[in-house]
Design a protein around this nucleic acid. Structure first.
Lengths: 108, 108
DNA sequence: TAAACTAGTTTGTAATACAAACCAGTTTAT
DNA sequence: ATAAACTGGTTTGTATTACAAACTAGTTTA
């Protein structure tokens, strides 16, 4: 009964929309802190690819990258920032809203 | 109480995942048939860009492109194929599923 | 009959994802 | 002791992609 417009897909956060980064951020939304190798295995991205995506997310302020050591071996810890959490929430609610809009149309 | 895995974002249909094409397909899901200019105005894509996206969707078998005339002027009509409809439904239900998985995690 | 418009397509460019090759250091084998 | 193999990444090169500018073919208007 209410008149719904179509989703405005151009307003999507393309940084999060990329599947590889959604995978990364989904994990970080749950575990709060993850090391590089854990992320690599969970996402099955190559190291290079993962590294590049992490840099983008870091530059956007969505994640924090902490360089530490486990014994003598380097260890990179990654966590979601407040900004990242907010952006993800926004992305998820937008998506849900748009999916609902499409459903309303399809069920006439 | 049920153990949910994280979304498998890599299984997404990247052809549909692209916002510009989601916009196009969202429209076609509703109107069944649209001409080029209507699509251009609704999506606010440039002609070249729209043309390229339509070609991709056509090559994938998701849409059908019908070249006709309105009077003496060329008119391009676009419609969703059965395949395209199926792909969209699949995309939407996957998305919904994944969004729910993330929600379940966030509300612990 | 020239100028401007319609309806697109083709072509060039900039951004992006991705993996291969590389690098600095550590542990293990000889 | 030192070479080989491994860890934990980064840098660099390539192929794909989105995007817009320029072009094309035909039509209507001045």
């Amino acid at each position: 009964m209410k008149e719904e417009a179509l989703p405005n897909w151009s307003a999507v956060d393309r940084l999060l929309h990329e599947p590889a980064r959604l995978a990364i951020v989904s994990i970080l939304a749950v575990v709060e802190k993850a090391d590089f190798l854990y992320l690599q295995h969970e996402t099955s991205l190559t190291k290079g690819n993962l590294s590049a995506h992490l840099s983008k997310l870091e530059n956007a302020g969505y994640i924090q990258i902490e360089k530490t050591f486990k014994g003598k071996m380097p260890l990179t810890l990654v966590s979601l920032t407040e900004q990242g959490r907010t952006a993800l929430d926004r992305y998820l609610s937008q998506m849900k809203h748009w999916l609902n809009q499409l459903d309303q149309h399809s069920q006439e």
